[in-house]
Design a protein around this nucleic acid. Structure first.
Length: 225
DNA sequence: CACCAGGCAAGTA
DNA sequence: TACTTGCATGGT
């Protein structure tokens, strides 16, 4: 405590450097809000490449809707999403979230969007298979709520740059961002997207933003490590 | 061959 | 509360 202003400057600096470098990333890549939610489940501990294949199959089979997934045979659903890994487990989770959507708003996500952030977050966390990261991804990228999504990349990058401890809890990291970064849907959307993009593009050694990486500006000489 | 990828829930001490 | 383990395919 007491180092707020310094860290605040640092986190906003990271955002602006990444934003200048990558530009507007326009996340989440999907054709519908429901597709965002499905993708959020499928990408749990899984590369996005494998998730894209699974979503393509669901589209090809005309199965990408809450009612279709809720009613589909579980074994068949699991086969469709096989490429995303943990497919039997994720088939259950896709059905859970589809049933939730049906129950809460009859499949009309625009109706769900009218509810408050905290209320929605609690409800999402009650769905089996939806943890904090998945819930927050859905909130910001599907339902348009101003929350910051914390993921493995965020942890690595923030702790590497001394913003948080390497063992900081999810809610701690999220609160830190909410307190020191604009609570804007647009910017929170973009910030998480930038961190993922940076981690994916800048270091093959799984060490994003490290001093050897060509990250325009975010290097030791700039006081970032 | 080992290791990782846009986590989560259930079990154990 | 704080660890540990199972879940699984596809790429490097």
């Amino acid at each position: 405590m007491g180092n707020g202003p310094e860290l605040k400057g640092k986190i906003n600096k990271i955002y602006s450097l990444l934003n200048d470098h990558f530009g507007d990333l326009k996340w989440w890549p999907a054709e519908s809000d429901f597709e965002v939610m499905i993708g959020a489940i499928l990408t749990q501990n899984t590369s996005w490449k494998n998730v894209e294949k699974a979503i393509d199959v669901l589209k090809r089979k005309k199965a990408l809707s809450p009612s279709k997934i809720a009613n589909m045979d579980k074994g068949r659903l699991a086969r469709y999403i096989r490429s995303s890994g943990y497919h039997r487990l994720k088939a259950d989770r896709l059905k859970e979230i589809s049933l939730f959507i049906t129950r809460e708003c009859g499949g009309k996500l625009d109706k769900l969007k009218k509810e408050g952030l905290e209320n929605l977050r609690e409800k999402l966390l009650e769905v089996k298979g939806v943890g904090p990261e998945t819930a927050d991804s859905i909130l910001v990228y599907a339902l348009g709520k101003p929350v910051f999504v914390v993921d493995a990349y965020t942890r690595r990058i923030f702790s590497r740059h001394g913003l948080i401890g390497h063992d900081a809890a999810y809610d701690e990291i999220q609160s830190f961002v909410h307190k020191n970064f604009p609570r804007s849907i647009r910017k929170l959307n973009q910030f998480h997207a930038l961190l993922v993009e940076a981690a994916k593009n800048f270091c093959k050694k799984k060490d994003p933003l490290c001093r050897e990486c060509p990250l325009g500006g975010l290097r030791r000489r700039d006081g970032f490590i």
